[in-house]
Each structure stands twice: as C-alpha cells, then as structure tokens.
Design a protein around this nucleic acid. Structure first.
Lengths: 149, 149
DNA sequence: TATTGTTATACTCTATAACTATA
DNA sequence: TATAGTTATAGAGTATAACAATA
C-alpha cells in the first residue's frame, strides 16, 4: 500500500513547491500562468506558430496571450523581414527582466536550496539534467521539441 | 545576457518534462489536472475542506471536482462518524490504482531516468528532498501544509 | 491553393454569493 | 451563532470556426 519510491516522492515534492512558487511569482508580475509560459519561450524572438506548437496551445489563444503580454509592455510583435505573414514575438527590455526573474525564481525559492553546498548544487544539476533526458540544444533555448513534449 | 544558472536550467527542464507527463497521464485517466491534484491528496480519506485549503481551491470548486471523481468511479464521499457536516473523500479501489499510476508516472517518464545508476537515483532523491525543504511529515502524506505552500 | 495570424463565438474552468444542514 | 458543504450564477480562461492577408 506504500509503493512510493523515494525518488518519486522527492520529484513530486519539488514539483509541488515549484508549482506554488511559479504561480506566486507569475501573479506578482501581473501575469497568468500561460502568459508566463509563453514569456519563458522568448529567450529569442519566435513566430507565434512556434509558441503555439511548443506549448500545445491553439493559435487563437496565443494571440490572446501575446495581446496581454503586449499590454503589459513585456513583449512586442515584430515583422519577419522574410515573410510578411509571420509575426516575431520578442521581449521588450522590461519583458527581458521579467523573464530573468522568472527563470531564477525556481531554484531561489526552494526552501532548502541554501542548505546545499556548492558541490551538492552542481551534483544536483548534473543528475537532474541527466534524468530530464537527452534534449540536446543550447542551454537557455528550451531545446527544439522543448516543453510539454 | 545568459544568467541561467545550471541548477535553474535543470530544474526548469525537469519541471517542463513533468508538466507534460502529468498532463498526458491525467488525460489518459480521463481527468482534468485539478481533479488529478485532488486525487493525489487521497492517500487517506480527507474532508473536503482540507482538500480546498491544501490546494487553495474554493470549496465550491472542490465540490465540482469531487463530483467528477465520483462520476468516474475514482473517489467516494463517506460520512464522518464524529461530525455529520463533514464528508470524507476517499479513493475507491479503482481510484487507488489510478493514484498509484499517477504517482509513479513522474519518475518513470523522465527520459533519462534509466540512465541513472541506483546510487545516482538515491543521491538524487536525497538532494531533491533536501532542496525541497524541511517539510517534516509522513512520506506519502504530502506534509501538513503541503502543496502550493 | 496553402499558411500565418486575427476575430467572433461558444465552451469549460473557477470563484463569489446565497442557501441547507449540522454543530 | 459558526462551520462543512452544495447550488446557482457570473467571470475568466481556452478552443473552434470563419475570415484576411500573404506566400
């Protein structure tokens, strides 16, 4: 009746903490969680279609989400010089700051993170990276297939 | 411009994978994510109020979620012998199986999990537990304040 | 004709307010 | 009177369908 593998339990615990932290940080930024997930993809300008495909959101919904990000001054639509149908979504400077704050929020807000030595932190990062699988791709880039795969 | 700490990046990567896995497994069970989050609290029977407080959901919404779980035969309302206002929500036998499947889904579906040695798995579990913070509580019990704290 | 994105609309999710039953 | 839960309802979140512009 207690099939709980310690690793399962630990992953759930971290997941629960991260979900809570994410929700709160996102609210602080005046965003909804889906808006924040889109913002997190904007390490570089991306076409809306790519945002929709990566997050498995409907394109019309991405339109609404990007509208919100634009209203809050965190992102902007830019023309694609090569194809006038495409709109590239990029962070504003304010959006870039919000993005960084969001990225850093996670580990910073794990309550026990400061109890880890530098060596443990690096060990943890390595093990997690290995466990998360062979994604292959630039570090801040979310990989090619990326999220929600 | 690349402030991405390796640990941040790794935690995000794992988080992304887990969100995807969770969403798919939940859909396979014919549940919505919030229903699954409630199911996950049912390691033992709990009053609805406790479910609402833990997940930060409105009680009326918990009513709707539990209705759904009952319709799918995964949970049931039981009277509290001590207080007839209270309804204890418990898994059915089918719900218990679904719960286990959900709990195990996470680590099993991290693509690189099989590449870890037993020692690495245990190391990872320890580091994660330490990082997730001093929750203090029975293992499969989600702690007292628990989720979304 | 096929593709990117938007608009209009309907549907689902979630919270608020008023209510019933019990304490 | 206060508390656990439900019902009715309104609001936000999200998808579907039809459309405009470009390729």
């Amino acid at each position: 009746m207690h099939p709980h593998d310690p690793l399962d339990a630990a992953l759930w615990a971290v997941s629960d903490v991260m979900r809570g932290v994410f929700a709160r940080r996102v609210a602080d930024l005046g965003l909804t969680p889906p808006q924040a997930l889109i913002l997190r993809l904007l390490g570089r300008p991306r076409p809306m279609k790519e945002l929709a495909a990566t997050m498995l959101f409907d394109p019309s919904y991405v339109t609404a989400l990007v509208d919100g990000l634009e209203e809050r001054g965190l992102a902007e639509r830019r023309p694609d010089p090569a194809d006038r149908r495409i709109k590239l979504i990029a962070t504003t400077s304010e959006g870039s700051i919000a993005l960084q704050s969001l990225q850093q929020a996670i580990s910073q807000s794990l309550p026990g993170i400061d109890a880890l030595t530098d060596e443990e932190r690096s060990q943890l990062a390595q093990l997690l990276t290995k466990a998360a699988g062979p994604v292959g791709g630039p570090s801040a880039d979310l990989g090619s297939t990326g999220i929600c795969g």
